[in-house]
Design a protein around this nucleic acid. Structure first.
Lengths: 134, 134
DNA sequence: TCAAAACCTACACTTGACGTGAGGTTTTAT
DNA sequence: ATAAAACCTCACGTCAAGTGTAGGTTTTGA
């Protein structure tokens, strides 16, 4: 029988680490930076995480890969998981987002340029290799 | 009268730094990593750079912005400035380039996703601000 | 001509993003 | 009931990418 309303699939740090491939060290670190907020348990002081924590870690990884610093991630990560109705300082957040949109567009342009440079270079080198073969 | 064949517009580190906005400390650092090769002068041991050095610094900046490490940049920067005929280890370089092409495509996808997430969030927050205004 | 500005080397410090290890408590499996 | 496994905090270590500082030489411009 599954509880539909709130799964509350709580896990300890070890399981979260294994499931996400993020080391428990790193999870501790992210918590200190405010990227992750486990529900702490009274008893032993162990951290308990829900599924959202795993999703957060995934998202953090994706954002890191595209070049955001952990600090920058901290400013937007909640948008993915919190009801935006509750966000305080909406104007400020809006500004940040607009900056990020611009930056992202720049990165996209630059990355596209880089991509075609790589293709050009691959073609060049491949033809050189061909030539040297005969 | 302009010399067409070889401008050889040599400058010292200070000018290069000023022209590119990269500090002289950083230029020294990049040189140690092999990203830049000034023609050293016999006399006082001062470094002298040509215009290519400035272009290299631009390119390095662009590549950094899209998430390459200085080490990675070192493996490709010469492709932009050297005649590829002279590149040694063509096969190896080719492999690296192909990996980078894949990675770049992944980044492009991820970055596109991020971009549309930002747009969605901007729209959400904007409508919230509108609502709270009336 | 001589002091300030620019350059040199070399080493230490900083910051971001983790990792390691010690020393101790709590769970869990036998 | 007890040892191994998992957890905790705390403090130091590491690597990348620089920045800062010291102590000395060379250029340059008033």
């Amino acid at each position: 029988m599954k509880r539909v309303t709130k799964p509350q699939n709580l896990m300890k740090i070890g399981e979260l680490a294994e499931r996400t491939g993020v080391s428990h060290r790193t999870i501790h670190y992210y918590e200190r930076l405010g990227l992750l907020k486990p529900h702490e348990r009274e008893g032993a002081g162990y951290r308990y995480f829900d599924d959202e924590a795993a999703q957060r870690l995934e998202k953090i990884g994706a954002l890191k890969k595209i070049g955001l610093s952990l600090d920058e991630i901290a400013t937007v990560i909640d948008l993915y998981f919190e009801d935006p109705t509750g966000i305080r300082g909406k104007r400020r957040v809006l500004e940040i987002l607009k900056c990020q949109l611009d930056e992202t567009d720049n990165k996209l342009t630059e990355l596209g340029r880089f991509r075609s440079d790589i293709e050009t270079n691959i073609a060049k080198i491949e033809s050189l290799i061909q030539q040297s073969k005969r």
